[in-house]
């Protein structure tokens, strides 16, 4: 194969030099592509960016649905009319601070080493991606109350479905508890390309009218 080579002792494909260059080139090229894709992705996943994949934090002022999208062929979050969390309409900044407090709390209490968030974490307890929309809360009117009660005392309010697996009491303060629920509500509005598949949310009011 290496006909024209001056030193035909080694085929090009067995030469150290060829593979060194190859390794450098491939690594550099792939890293470059990753960096370029990263720049693009970062603009897309900015909260509230135009792409609409990651909602603005004030989405917690709205009803959130999860409906099948014919065009994309999987379910996507739908942002409905106003349905303020704990009955309070928040400004963008107030909403951001509330969600932020929730996320800090979820990290500080190490929730991710039992639960998954967007499917990542541990497998000892249910995924939290759509916890806000889970049919287990019964209906829209009961949800906030039940969620608050559960997170306030998960031992007394445990539903273990026969596994005996209870959630330890995270001893949340009132503010932390509200933050966590706001964080979960915001999380449920992230467009996750149809994960979890086949999920049906709890019954809620209409999603049209007054949406953003």
């Amino acid at each position: 194969m290496a006909e024209g080579a001056d030193e035909p002792r080694r085929e090009w494909w067995a030469s150290e030099d060829f593979w060194r260059k190859c390794a450098i080139f491939v690594t550099g090229f792939m890293a470059l592509v990753l960096v370029m894709l990263t720049f693009h992705t970062l603009t897309v996943i900015e909260a509230g960016s135009e792409a609409g994949r990651v909602p603005a934090y004030s989405v917690i002022n709205h009803r959130i649905g999860y409906e099948f999208d014919e065009q994309r062929n999987f379910a996507v979050p739908v942002i409905g009319p106003p349905a303020p969390l704990f009955g309070e309409m928040l400004s963008e900044e107030e909403a951001r601070r509330l969600v932020d407090h929730g996320k800090l709390t979820v990290q500080a209490r190490n929730c991710m080493n039992c639960h998954t968030l967007l499917g990542n974490g541990a497998y000892y307890a249910p995924d939290l991606t759509k916890a806000w929309l889970d049919p287990g809360w019964g209906n829209e009117a009961a949800r906030e109350i039940l969620m608050t009660r559960f997170l306030d005392d998960p031992i007394a309010n445990a539903r273990t479905f026969g596994t005996g697996r209870r959630m330890p009491d995270p001893n949340l303060t009132e503010a932390e508890l509200r933050g966590v629920i706001a964080y979960l509500k915001w999380m449920s509005a992230i467009d996750t390309n149809g994960f979890p598949h086949g999920f049906t949310p709890l019954p809620q009011g209409p999603l049209t009218g007054g949406g953003r």
Partner: peptide, 30 residues
């Protein structure tokens, strides 16, 4: 050493962008 270079090329060649298998469902683009 030659093998090592081949492995580096193949590993980085696939593994760097293979990172994308964690970006299916976390809100990142399609």
């Amino acid at each position: 050493t030659t093998w090592l270079y081949i492995e580096v090329a193949l590993m980085f060649g696939s593994g760097i962008l293979g990172l994308g298998h964690h970006y299916f469902w976390i809100g990142t683009p399609e």
